[in-house]
Amino acid sequence: MNKYSAQTDQSSHKNVLYKVIYTVICSVFALSVLVMFGTTTEQINNKLPTKGLKDQNFLNKVNYQVSINKPKKSPVVVLEETDFHGRPLTASCTTCHSTRQPNNTLNDSSKLDEFHPDLILNHGQLSCMSCHNAGDYDKLKLANGQTLDYTNVMQLCAQCHGPQHRDYQNGSHGGMQGYWDLSKGPRVRNNCTDCHNPHTPAFQKFRPVFPPDRDLTQEHSFLIDVKSKSIKGNIVEIQENE
């Protein structure tokens, strides 16, 4: 009996020792996992609120306006003479035109012998007096004869270009800068004459500004050429383009 009980005592002591060691190892492991992945409760708590720009009712607040670039009040002709400071002198339209008879049928500047010989009019069937105001050359004229300031030129254009005017009013024609969200900042929009020359309104052709990075057709032809033609030449081309 004694012999056996002594043995069981010894083995139970051993068991306790193993349990203690096991627990210590486990807790050390668990602690190191916690430290490594950093998910202590403190960090979880301060995880959510600080990031971000919280502004709940932004849709309701419209604090800023959409403004449209306006052209100069009325255009001037730059003269060859200069003033005392060396600045070129300018003359308003009425300076000359107030003493001249308007030519209501003129629609070609090449028929002019003194002024505006370089002006190219290529705007549908319009003649000069369709838009310019014979009564006051520093103003424009609507189709119904009403006088219109140069600053409101868009109203003149809109008489004929209805669809473009509609698209413009709904923000899908004409360049703009600034904010889509008017609660955060203003927006500035071009007017018709910022982009279109009123005498030759069609967009003039010009060279594109920026070299492209990769050509899809070349990549495509590369895939085809692997089977048939020279591979080397195409690889060189692609590397150049990338």
Binding site: L53, Y168, G175, Q177, Y179, D181, K184, C195
Partner: peptide
């Protein structure tokens, strides 16, 4: 755009 501004490509577009 998350600050309310328009994207850079839109601002650069001359035709709208």
């Amino acid at each position: 755009t998350r600050q309310g501004q328009l994207p850079a490509c839109l601002e650069a577009c001359p035709t709208g």
